[in-house]
């Protein structure tokens, strides 16, 4: 039994990492006052760019960088439309998602089934020998280790730096920025692009470290999960981290049980991640809206 728990927790980290990158990216955008439903698209282009560049250059790190750039570029489309053209955020986000899906199925065909070097798990010396924690946290790929630092870094940056303050102000009281001679649009645009870049890293992690393959539509809705996650984590990076692992655990439970021959209703297991999301959103109810950045609340209401 205890070994089932360890396996589910390990799987939670394995499967939650890509979602966490995307959700942290969405957090940046939303804290600046922009909802980006195109996150799924940024993950997809990140996954393809990551896999393709790893295949062409032989270096997974180059792939990760490409995933970052590609995810950011796709989000730039959203930023331009929403921030400068004032287009509807939801309609634009969905369109950008379909753009990412279309572009990747067009250019991705050549990489389906193609071999590429990827990130392999590396046990961290000493730490990996710890009971339970060693296995759950320290037998992963290098990108996953990077992800451990991402949420605390973002928490610190948003809270404790001038850049973080400007970004939060863009999301809460854009007028204040105007008065002080800043351009809130520029800050929002930058936040959306940086968020897309993070989602691209998540996609690249999915393709080059987790699945070791590219396939059309391989993110399978994880980008949308990330958007929902940001809301139920009330826009806080550390809660986003916890929520990603909760989601990862829900995804990891089914295979962990099945590999032991334990029977549980498969359909219930498949629905579990979504049931959890719905339950948390229902429990939080209107409280989430109250916690939302003010400028974002205007988008929602």
């Amino acid at each position: 039994m205890s070994d089932l728990v360890v396996d589910v927790l390990t799987g939670a980290v394995r499967g939650g990492t890509a979602i966490m990158f995307a959700a942290l990216g969405e957090t940046l955008a939303e804290r600046a006052g922009v909802v980006n439903l195109g996150t799924e698209g940024s993950m997809l282009v990140g996954a393809l760019a990551g896999y393709a560049v790893a295949a062409e250059t032989g270096t997974p790190w180059a792939g990760l960088a490409a995933g970052l750039v590609a995810g950011g570029l796709l989000a730039l489309v959203h930023a331009v439309m929403v921030v400068w053209r004032r287009a509807d955020q939801f309609a634009t986000g969905l369109t950008v998602m379909f753009l990412g899906l279309g572009l990747t199925s067009l250019f991705g065909a050549a990489y389906v089934g193609r071999a590429a070097p990827g990130f392999d798990p590396v046990a961290v010396p000493l730490l990996s020998d710890l009971p339970v924690l060693g296995e759950v946290l320290f037998h992963h790929d290098p990108v996953t280790y990077l992800s451990f630092a991402a949420a605390p870094l973002m928490w610190w940056w948003l809270r404790g730096t001038r850049g973080g303050l400007l970004l939060r102000t863009a999301g809460e009281r854009a007028d204040v920025l105007h008065v002080h001679g800043y351009r809130p649009g520029l800050i929002r645009g930058a936040a959306v692009v940086a968020g897309g870049a993070l989602a691209g890293v998540g996609g690249a992690q999915l393709a080059t470290a987790y699945a070791h393959a590219w396939f059309e539509g391989m993110t399978a809705g994880r980008g949308f999960i990330a958007v929902a996650l940001v809301i139920f984590a009330v826009w806080r990076p550390l809660w986003v981290m916890a929520g990603s692992y909760l989601f990862g655990a829900a995804l990891a439970l089914a295979p962990a049980l099945q590999a032991r021959g334990l029977s549980l209703n498969q359909f219930a297991l498949d629905a579990l991640p979504f049931l959890i999301t719905l339950a948390i959103l229902a429990i939080l109810g209107r409280r989430t809206l109250r916690a939302a950045p003010e400028e974002l609340r205007r988008v929602f209401t």
Binding site: A256, Q258, D270
Partner: peptide, 27 residues
Amino acid sequence: TFAVSTSSWCDPAKQAEAAANLLKQGV
């Protein structure tokens, strides 16, 4: 034979999780 389903014809991440769990069980 240990049978694990992914409920999808192609979800590479779910496949990775299925394979990892099977290998962990000594398959």
